[in-house]
Amino acid sequence: MWEYSDKVREHFFNPRNSGPLEEANGIGDVGSIQCGDALRLMLKVNPETEVIEDAHFQTFGCGSAIASSSALTEMIKGKTLDEALKVSNQDIADFLDGLPPEKMHCSVMGREALQAAVANYRGEVWSDDHEEGALICKCFAIDAVMIEDVVKANNLHTVEEVTFYTKAGGGCAACHEGIEEILAKVKAERAGPGEVSPPLVQIEPAPKAAAAPVAPAPTAPIKLTSVQRIKKIEEVLESVRPMLQRDHGDVELVEVQGKHIYVSLKGACSGCMMEAATLGGIQQKMIETLGELVQVLPVSYMPTEA
């Protein structure tokens, strides 16, 4: 059904730091109602230095839930609380050489247990801020709640738009029926019975690919100098970089030739099947910021000098 990495299997068959921890002074109990898994993380924190001297876990869950718990305790031991809190669920998955998309929620549960245990040590109350739904897009591990929230927040109407905003549906395309169902549900809710329909808002279609720019909604045209223009372009790229870096990718400006902006996609972005959507998103931002029609292209499109 799914293949676990050797590291996941190793941590499942030989879990580290399992069982109760007598001297624990920070305990986090969290669970995932969706899959019924639950995890108790116990920390022994040095009150002077806030260093985690020991960490144990008890887990009711599948192979990857146990492996994620085991990995987490190994990763945070010896760290200060603030350092430990920087461990993301992606870090846990990376430590285990990756998790199947269906199992990413196991790493999320580990991350939440850590937050809950730290809050418990500090005498705070931790409350969860995200809800998890049924997995829709298996290529990019996007669930139904996430898609519904984004559809509502951004007033999306098509599968292409959903792919553009969330990546869901951008891979094998098998989940398009599921995405269409969510769109239909939100649409039905928007026009609830007896409600007055909100005034129609003209939606700008998102550009599908870098090679197909669409008419911008131009802001007041201000004539920029070349230097100002390139600075603005750099600003736009800076603003999207954290998002790409979160997925282990990056982008860099290579050259600006008139209306053509050439960029180089790095790391996980290079060769990603979402490359066109990523460039399309950057292009849309460029057009809005610069107030002019430009094309964002991969560096491979740059004409070679004669």
């Binding site: 109990d29 995932s32 995890l39 409350s127």
Partner: peptide
């Protein structure tokens, strides 16, 4: 069961649903 938060050395927690009540996401 040794790994399970619902279980102790003597057997299940006396009132498992209450003794271990995780914050569900």
């Amino acid at each position: 069961r040794k790994l399970s938060p619902y279980w102790t050395e003597k057997g299940p927690l006396t009132n498992p649903e209450q003794a271990f009540a995780p914050a569900y996401a």
